[in-house]
Design a protein around this nucleic acid. Structure first.
Lengths: 163, 163
DNA sequence: TACGTATACTTGAGTTCTCAAGGATCATAG
DNA sequence: CTATGATCCTTGAGAACTCAAGTATACGTA
């Protein structure tokens, strides 16, 4: 009951509008992604999701990842990944590679152009993140925030398996 | 320099993947909105944005708001609001009303059906938010989180007005 | 070996946004 | 009173997803 108070209780300001942690979370996300993706798009012609996928590949062993694992790590659906990679493939940033041991799977592999792209885009994008997301906080607060965010569920909790 | 560390530094785990506060923020948003909107859609046939807009109207004076103000408060573009309200209008949840003093503006007004809808949807949606977003935290932590989130910029910072 | 089920991926259709452009109205300054 | 510029809103085109359905491959089991 006590923890319900702040997340759902209407913290009604002068305007009469509810302003909860959840609403702030939503608004902050909308504002930040809008600005960050606009900058990333303008300078490097990449979507936030593009960048996200490229980074995952960049740090993966052999700079390759099964499409399905990629989907799960960036929280897209399988079809979302197919569409996104279509774009990155036609830009020449990633390539396909077949799996010898399982003909169902296709690997997404970072090309040399992809490596160059991510190394080139990293700096300015991280600077933008720092400016918009990092600057308002001290080191300790940022750690606090990271710890709190880490507690949020990344998948469905109850699968309602009645047994 | 110190605050840059945690937001951009690669907190590389065993997997070699970066996991920063920002990345956690992105992932948490994706997971939470996916689950919440899926539930809201299933039970009440409303989008998260629909709900958001209905709540804004619900708390507004006279349960009406200029479309542009509505857009700004939920962080959508003007055209986004037009499209969203198109849907709510054809569902009979909101109506249009002209402004006597300014023929450019149109008010969005909650209909009786709209009021009923929001009052009916509120309970389960707030419970879902509590379950997924509130439950992992104590009251104090939730307040901490809200305070931290409140510091994030909701609009563009520098308009680059070189002067 | 063959059947059923699970997994990996793609595709068609639809949704929810965005941006750029245009129309209408207002406010101000000559 | 009229030109200029700002504001409110809509519309066409398109981006970035989602879901449902389909294909192909793998695996367990009788």
């Amino acid at each position: 009951m006590s923890s319900q108070v702040l997340s759902t209780q209407e913290v009604v300001g002068v305007s009469g509008l509810p302003d909860t942690a959840w609403v702030r979370f939503l608004r902050a996300h909308a504002a930040l992604t809008r600005e960050l993706s606009s900058r990333l798009e303008a300078v490097h012609e990449l979507t936030l999701s593009d960048f996200d996928v490229l980074v995952q590949l960049y740090y993966a062993e052999g700079r390759r990842l099964r499409r399905i694992d990629l989907a799960r790590s960036v929280l897209l659906t399988a079809s979302g990944i197919t569409r996104l990679l279509d774009g990155l493939e036609s830009s020449g940033l990633v390539g396909k590679e077949r799996c010898d041991s399982d003909a169902r799977v296709t690997y997404a592999v970072l090309t040399n152009a992809g490596v160059r792209k991510i190394e080139e885009a990293r700096e300015s994008h991280l600077a933008d993140i720092e400016e918009l997301f990092g600057a308002p906080f001290s080191t300790q607060e940022l750690k606090q925030l990271a710890d709190l965010l880490a507690r949020l569920p990344l998948a469905h909790t109850s699968e309602a398996c009645s047994a």
